[in-house]
Design a protein around this nucleic acid. Sequence first.
DNA 1: ATGGCAGTGCTTCACTGA
Length: 254
Amino acid sequence: MKLATWNVNSLAVRLPQLLDWLGQHQTDVVVLQETKLTDDKFPHEALKEAGYHAQWFGQKTYNGVALVSREPATDVARNIFGFEDEQARVIAATVNGVRVVGAYFPNGQAPDSDKFVYKMGWLTALRRWLADEMAQHPQLVLMGDFNIAPEDRDVYDPVAWAGQIHCTPEERAHFQALIAMGFVDAFRLFEQPPKSWSWWDYRNLAFRKNQGLRIDHILVSQALKPRVTACVIDKLPRKNERPSDHAPVVITLD
DNA sequence: ATGGCAGTGCTTCACTGA
């Protein structure tokens, strides 16, 4: 079983690339972030023609998430239970017996901003909710755009980024708190090329110079960990014409 | 220190992203 997460930065623009990518791989589940579509505009027909079911949760202009799967998804949940949120950031469902949580974590903008305060509150609420989800569904995978670079080795220039958004001690503490509750960073279960990133700035020829961050992650529960056989970042879509600034991260389960 | 690139939606520039 293959699952993936991809921040597409507008599904309206990236739909052809998504369909191409789904056609090239045997991906069973893909969670999308930054669809930037209201629910009435979600391209479920095109995905259906490609052989995929979809669940979606969007809004105008910003955010928006979706869960695309070969097999039907059940017990669909939107956003964090018990956390009032105007922003569409989370979609969860059960597929083939695996509880899948797809999330677009808040960016945070700057450590001294209101958006950072929102990010901290969102992260606390997420963890509280995930503890319940994990108790109910031991086979749980949390994947998405975390907007957190967990360690200095996940940053192309850790000195320049020290204390900056995605790299603050507060954000990294939240990531470690997820690890402390039993989640495992699937990417680090395997030997990986140094300077592995999932996002590269559109500016400054960052992709060509491989200047990026690893901020898109796949975390698996303890019960799921023995089933993980691979986890990779697929850089190829970042080489497309008009690419997303993020690359997909893919996990393979037995 | 700044902006650089991209997407959206109307304010055809401002906002957000990371």
